[in-house]
Nucleic acid binder design. Structure first.
Lengths: 206, 206
DNA sequence: AGCAAAATTAAACAAACGTTTGATTTAAAC
DNA sequence: GTTTAAATCAAACGTTTGTTTAATTTTGCT
């Protein structure tokens, strides 16, 4: 898949608009106008609106496993690496939140015909990597064995997204004045909360 | 707000279709056909498609606080009531997952003009109720004081939704053959996982 | 410079969209 | 039984939708 600058520009514009207004809520004319290209260019470059989304997913889902392995293979204690792991996941999730929003919405709909293989593959790989790390920690006697490893990621990523999807509510509750304040809150308070949560779960035997 | 049987029927059909295909992905003609009414009835009863959604939200957001209080005011230990609380939240969230999916998608988009006051109000009330319970537990020396109470709900509900939004992935990972198996998994394994997570966080001082 | 391929454009296409209209049927009230 | 309001309907409204067409411009190569 070779993408020229103009194509990448269209994909980035589409990401923003799809996340804001959804796939069906975004017209190719809006994309074209925002990207400052002719409407016909979208069919010309991507074939169709649907294929544009599939191209975007392939383009955007970068390899997560190497980032995870880099953190896991550090010479630190299990709990320190666990903290780093969660920090990485939250940062990455926050960075790619628009892509995830599109996927969450379209992927949970089983009647949609999109191709989500790239996403599923990446998800499976990162699960295996995390599973292997936790099991080593369990064998080393650091982590509690009585835990559902397949539900760790939902708790980590889900905590982030339930905050993000209710951002307008939490902005009044906390309060967070602007998007910069939200970023800081995510990278500090929210990250710390999830680190604390997962560490408790993995190290405290009930 | 008085709704007759036909109106409620249209709202229930709309809920299913909006959750499946989104607000913009669902046409009034599809709603009308699925609900077996004439297209014009939607404008006649609700005024417009947008007002139909707002009517739906008002109709669907039932009072959550009383359910919470019933659990909290039981004569049980703090940890037992915490377990019951989480069980209630997961059951209720699972029951209303379609409504939440619509809200998550539309609410996180700040440019949408929908009226979410009813949702925000309900969310604030349940937060206050949970906060009060946790603080009493802290004063009683049962719960750890070093915890972000405003992030408990994101972790509880978020764990559920990140599982739900990636259902197609987890169906192959776990594996869950059909939707009944998913229901059982949510009510048993997932609920237990979240209970365990929150109990660790609240009772284990790191 | 001259040619072929690629890129870009305005215009047109049929289909689908939310909504309104005006006529007709049903239901309720007296 | 007549009257009045509510409910229901098929049809039509003007827009907007994704995509295609055919003409034109730009680019890259020899």
């Amino acid at each position: 898949m070779k993408l020229n600058e103009k194509q990448i520009h269209i994909l980035n514009v589409s990401e923003k608009l799809f996340a804001e207004n959804g796939f069906d809520g975004t017209s190719v004319r809006t994309i074209a106008k925002e990207a400052d290209v002719n409407v016909a260019m979208i069919s010309y470059y991507f074939g169709s609106k649907e294929k544009l989304l599939e191209t975007f997913l392939l383009y955007r889902i970068a390899d997560f496993r190497n980032e995870l392995l880099k953190v896991i293979n550090q010479e630190k204690s299990y709990t320190e690496r666990l903290d780093d792991l969660i920090k990485l996941i939250i940062h990455r999730t926050h960075d790619k939140r628009r892509m995830y929003k599109i996927i969450h919405f379209e992927f949970s709909n089983e009647t949609r015909g999109f191709d989500f293989k790239a996403y599923t593959k990446e998800k499976l790989e990162s699960f295996k990597t995390i599973k292997s790390f936790v099991e080593k920690g369990q064998d080393a006697g650091v982590f509690n064995k009585n835990v559902n490893i397949e539900l760790l990621m939902p708790t980590v990523q889900g905590s982030y997204f339930n905050f993000y999807y209710n951002k307008r509510f939490y902005k009044t509750l906390i309060p967070l004045e602007n998007d910069v304040a939200v970023d800081i809150y995510v990278h500090q308070t929210l990250t710390k909360h999830i680190q604390q949560t997962i560490k408790s779960l993995l190290t405290y035997e009930i």
